[in-house]
Simulated scan of single mutants.
Amino acid sequence: MSLDVQIHGIDELNRKLTKLANTKIAKRIARKAARQAMNIVRDAARANAKAAGSETTARLKLRKRDDIDSSMRVLFDGQTFQIVSPPKPDNENGRIYMTLELSLVG
């Protein structure tokens, strides 16, 4: 019983591994990869800000209560915040915490 195996791309893999042995080239490759990764994060953050309408300026996480609605305001550190949306459940079952999205009032 014999098994024939063909592996393609070994030469290219060896060239890339050899390049990584050179610290200058390895740093350049790592810098480029990090920049590309951060561009993805930056683009996602921009998209989320546009999707939210840039109306939310703060979030407040607190214990679940039934007596809070979006017509109320929050006073914190001398600033007044309007509750932008209805409270959102913040965990799996929504029974312990909730999050309020807030916007700074004039």
Rank of each mutant, 00 (worst) to 15 (best):
Met1Glu: 14
Met1Phe: 03
Met1Pro: 08
Met1Ile: 14
Ser2Lys: 15
Leu3His: 14
Leu3Gly: 14
Leu3Ala: 15
Asp4Pro: 05
Val5Cys: 10
Val5Ser: 07
Gln6Gly: 12
Gln6Arg: 11
Ile7Cys: 04
His8Asp: 14
Glu12Trp: 05
Glu12Phe: 07
Leu13Thr: 03
Leu13Gln: 05
Leu13His: 02
Arg15Phe: 10
Leu17Tyr: 05
Leu17Asp: 02
Leu17Ser: 04
Thr18Pro: 00
Thr18Tyr: 06
Thr18His: 08
Lys19Glu: 15
Lys19Thr: 13
Ala21Phe: 01
Ala21Gln: 11
Ala21Thr: 15
Ala21Glu: 13
Ala21Cys: 05
Asn22Ser: 12
Thr23Ser: 10
Lys24Ile: 04
Lys24Met: 06
Arg28Ile: 12
Ile29Asp: 03
Ile29Lys: 10
Ile29Tyr: 05
Ala33Gly: 00
Ala33Asn: 12
Ala34Asn: 09
Arg35Ser: 06
Gln36Pro: 07
Gln36Arg: 13
Met38Arg: 11
Met38Asn: 15
Met38Thr: 07
Arg42Glu: 04
Ala44Tyr: 07
Ala44Asp: 11
Ala44Arg: 14
Ala45Thr: 12
Ala45Gly: 02
Ala45Gln: 14
Arg46Ser: 10
Ala47Arg: 13
Asn48Tyr: 13
Asn48Gln: 14
Asn48Lys: 08
Ala49Asn: 13
Lys50Ile: 09
Ala52Cys: 05
Ser54Asn: 08
Ser54Phe: 07
Glu55Ile: 10
Glu55Trp: 03
Glu55Tyr: 05
Glu55Val: 09
Thr56Tyr: 03
Thr56Gln: 04
Thr57Gln: 01
Thr57His: 01
Thr57Tyr: 02
Ala58Met: 08
Leu60Ser: 05
Lys61Phe: 05
Lys61Trp: 07
Leu62Phe: 01
Leu62His: 05
Leu62Gln: 12
Arg65Pro: 00
Ile68Tyr: 00
Ser70Met: 00
Met72Pro: 01
Val74Phe: 07
Leu75Ile: 10
Phe76Cys: 04
Phe76Gln: 11
Asp77Trp: 13
Asp77Asn: 15
Gly78His: 15
Gln79Glu: 15
Gln79His: 13
Thr80Asn: 11
Thr80Leu: 11
Phe81Cys: 02
Gln82Glu: 03
Gln82Val: 04
Gln82Gly: 01
Gln82Asp: 01
Val84Gly: 02
Pro87Val: 04
Pro87Ala: 11
Pro87Met: 03
Lys88Asn: 00
Pro89Arg: 15
Pro89Val: 06
Pro89Met: 11
Asp90Arg: 13
Asn91Val: 11
Glu92Pro: 00
Asn93Val: 09
Asn93Ile: 03
Asn93Pro: 00
Gly94His: 08
Ile96Arg: 15
Tyr97Gln: 09
Met98Val: 01
Leu100Ile: 04
Glu101Ile: 02
Glu101Ser: 05
Glu101Met: 02
Leu102Tyr: 04
Leu104Ala: 06
Leu104Pro: 01
Val105Arg: 10
Val105Leu: 08
Gly106Asp: 11
Gly106Glu: 14
